[in-house]
Nucleic acid binder design. Sequence first.
DNA 1: GCATATTTGTCCGTATGTATA
DNA 2: CTATACATACGGACAAATATG
Lengths: 221, 221
Amino acid sequence: MTSREMTTALVPRLADEIRDKLIAGEFQPGQRLSEPALCAELQVSRNSLREAFRLLTKDGLLRHEPNRGVFVATPDMASIIDIYRMRRIIECRALEQAHPKHPAVARMRRAVDTALERSASGDWRSVGSANMAFHAAIVDLADSTRLSAFYTQIAAELRLCFGLLDDPEFLHAPYVDQNAAILAELEAGRPAAAAAALEAYLARSERTVLAAFTRIRENGA
Amino acid sequence: MTSREMTTALVPRLADEIRDKLIAGEFQPGQRLSEPALCAELQVSRNSLREAFRLLTKDGLLRHEPNRGVFVATPDMASIIDIYRMRRIIECRALEQAHPKHPAVARMRRAVDTALERSASGDWRSVGSANMAFHAAIVDLADSTRLSAFYTQIAAELRLCFGLLDDPEFLHAPYVDQNAAILAELEAGRPAAAAAALEAYLARSERTVLAAFTRIRENGA
DNA sequence: GCATATTTGTCCGTATGTATA
DNA sequence: CTATACATACGGACAAATATG
């Protein structure tokens, strides 16, 4: 080792770096990630890169084929359906049993406000981020760090799905108002109504994503 | 490589092996796992072992301290509370929205039957396993592979908590009948009643585990 | 408080099996 | 079928951090 700083652990940082590239769409889904190539690009050893690969594979962002290498995960319709099933279970229940004064409600409010703001200025990428933050806050209502961590992981996978689709306005714009309505019900002390609204939201969002996905597959392949 | 078989990947197998040792209570919680020692014991290289460590750390079974090594996770009361919060969210909802003819119901039935059988013969360790299988089957009712995988992971952590406690009969015996009652409600086409019974089950189980845990801490420390 | 031994973090080189051109 | 490229796994090396006397 010539001159290294040793600030924080290398491997998690490496995993974060690759994760960012993935959700930014820097790699094509299904693309193989060559170890030597990435080692050169990121200036790390093969062992370190492989350890980072393991973490991302466990996150579902990479797919590992024995003796063939790692590939960028290709979200398919089964994944989308699976993810939305999970969201219905977790988010709806967390919302239903939530206390209206829970600190996460304030984060939901902030997310809705930013989404409204950014959608007015047409910054759909930020709207998408605020949308994700809103639903992460819903999960936080359940007060389980493990559940929240799990949701964060799945959210990254969902972002990968979104990255496959092109039109971010079409994907996020219709849901700003629905989120606001869900939040209003909760703030008004009607968690059951909020949960019902969320159920409808998720059903509609799933249909939209699946439809967009189908269109892509028809055009692309 | 001198003479190896290369059937399946080494690292996941390694992780499974260590995981089994962990939930079997072969290592004390908080104990440091020395890399050289385990390398010698398991006959693997340091690099392979370290990759397995990463996986188990992500599962929450090991804790990593920079430049100090990996330690067996020490479940505390906060973890237990967190895990039961998560179980209430996921299991109750999965049960509530379940179809009584779902294939996982058959697995629930098998788990209840084996638990009854083994509790009659006093094999409390097997009763515990059947109990875990029962609740894993409940999660499978939601038909989300991601959710089921997540639950499997948390279940391993919960088993680590159980391993801290001694009296397995006290820990599992009272719940065999409750599981049977939950299943009966579901099979009778009353998922809401089943979910309510599960809610009561989880509340009681959490109290039992927390109480046993408190006793341990008072005696042990 | 200091010197030393142990252990981790990181990287390299290499041998072998496997997939693909 | 051969050749190439690559993944898998091993062992060794050295710096940095920690633990020990």
